[in-house]
C-alpha cells in the first residue's frame, strides 16, 4: 500500500468509527418524528447515556452492562417524553427542554455520587475491534468496513433494518401514517398512543446508547459536557436526511467526515487557529439546515400532539 492509500484507509476507518453516535441518535430521533413526536432532549439523554454507560462499565466491569444501563435510562427518558406529551398532551418542546435539563444535571450528579469529586477519574477499557472472518481480509474495504467495533456493525444493520421496516412492511405503513395524519390513522384502528410510546422508548434507548459510545470509544472516561452538541447536530442531521433511515445514514457519514477532517487538519497544523476548526461541525450543521429547508418534507404532524376528542371546526 502506498502512502496515499494508507492515509485514505485510516481516514475512512475513523469516519466509520465517528459516524456511530450520529447514526444512533438520529435514527432514534427519526423514529419518534415519524409518529409525530419531536424530541429536543437528545443532548441530555446522550449525556446521561455517556455518564451511566461509563459508570455501569466501571462498576460491573463489563462494557455490555454499561451499554444496557445507558439504554435503559435512555428508554426511561423516552417513556417520560411519551407520557407527558401523548398522555398528558403537554407541549413537546417544553417537555423536551425539561428532559434535556434533567439529563444534563443527572449526568454530572451520578459520577459525583458514585466516584466522588476527583481530578483523576478512573478509566474503562475501550471497545475492541472485532474483525469479521474472511471479509476483513478484503484489501482496503475489509479494513474500513469489517474490522471495526460491534457498534459500527450495529449502526449499519440498524439503518438497513429501519429502512426495510418503514418502507416495506405494513407496520411501517402504519407507523408513518401516525406522523402524517394521526386522526386518519386512528380512524382506521391504528393505535396512535402505542406507536408513539414505542418509538419514543426505542428512540430514547438508541440515544442513550449513542451517548455510552463516547466514553467507550473516545475517552475511556466521562467528562462534563462530553457530547459537545452531537445531540443537537443529530436533530439537524435528521432533517437533512429527510426523516429517512438510508439518507440519515449518509448524512451521518458526512458529519463524521467533517469531525475527522477538522481533527486531521488540526493535527497537521495549517496555520488556522484550532478554535476555528472546532467550529466546523456546527457551521456545517447550519449550512445543512439551509439546504434541508429547501428540499425536505418533514412528517406533517411533527411536534403536534393528537387528542381524539379535540373539537375542530366542522
Amino acid at each position: 500500500m502506498d502512502q496515499f492509500q494508507m492515509q485514505f484507509v485510516s481516514f475512512a476507518r475513523l469516519v466509520m468509527l465517528a459516524m456511530v453516535p450520529y447514526v444512533l441518535a438520529s435514527q432514534g430521533t427519526m423514529l419518534g418524528g415519524r409518529t409525530g413526536l419531536f424530541s429536543v432532549s437528545q443532548e441530555g439523554i446522550m449525556l446521561v447515556g455517556a455518564s451511566l454507560g461509563f459508570l455501569g462499565a466501571y462498576l460491573y466491569g463489563s462494557l455490555v452492562y454499561g451499554m444496557l444501563l445507558a439504554m435503559f435510562v435512555g428508554g426511561l427518558f423516552g417513556l417520560a417524553l411519551a407520557y407527558f406529551t401523548t398522555t398528558l398532551k403537554m407541549n413537546q418542546f417544553v417537555i423536551g427542554l425539561s428532559l434535556f435539563f434533567i439529563g444534563l444535571g443527572l449526568s454530572t450528579l451520578f459520577p459525583k455520587i458514585v466516584i466522588g469529586v476527583t481530578l483523576q477519574p478512573p478509566l474503562i477499557p475501550t471497545l475492541p475491534d472485532v474483525p469479521i472472518p474472511g471479509l476483513s481480509q478484503i484489501p482496503i474495504l475489509g479494513d474500513i468496513f469489517f474490522n471495526q467495533n460491534v457498534l459500527v456493525y450495529f449502526a449499519i444493520l440498524l439503518s438497513i433494518f429501519l429502512y426495510y421496516l418503514l418502507y416495506k412492511t405494513s407496520i411501517g405503513l402504519e407507523l408513518r401514517s401516525v406522523g402524517e395524519n394521526p386522526k386518519a390513522a386512528d380512524s382506521l384502528g391504528v393505535n396512535v398512543s402505542v406507536m408513539r410510546y414505542v418509538t419514543a422508548i426505542v428512540g430514547g434507548m438508541l440515544m442513550g446508547l449513542a451517548g455510552a459510545y463516547l466514553p467507550m470509544v473516545y475517552t475511556g472516561t466521562f467528562t462534563q459536557g462530553m457530547v459537545q452538541g452531537r445531540g443537537w447536530i443529530a436533530i439537524a442531521l435528521t432533517f437533512f436526511g429527510g426523516w429517512s433511515p438510508h439518507l440519515i445514514f449518509l448524512g451521518a457519514l458526512f458529519f463524521a467526515g467533517v469531525e475527522i477532517l477538522a481533527l486531521r487538519v488540526q493535527v497537521a497544523g495549517v496555520g488556522v487557529p484550532y478554535q476555528f476548526l472546532l467550529t466546523l461541525p456546527y457551521i456545517a450543521t447550519i449550512l445543512v439546515m439551509i439546504f434541508a429547508s429547501r428540499r425536505v418534507r418533514a412528517p406533517a404532524f411533527l411536534g403536534q400532539n393528537y387528542d381524539r376528542e379535540k373539537r375542530t371546526l366542522s
Binding site: 405494513s170 405503513l173 402504519e174 408513518r176 401514517s177 402524517e180 395524519n181 386522526k183 386518519a184 390513522a185 380512524s187 382506521l188 384502528g189 391504528v190 418534507r297 406533517a300 375542530t312 366542522s314
Partner: peptide, 19 residues
C-alpha cells in the same frame, strides 16, 4: 366530513392502512 387521508400515500395505501 373532512376526509381522513394521508396525503402522501396512494389510494391503495390509504385504503389498506390498518388492515
Amino acid at each position: 366530513q373532512h376526509f381522513l387521508q394521508i396525503d402522501s400515500y396512494t389510494v391503495t395505501e390509504n385504503i389498506v392502512l390498518g388492515t
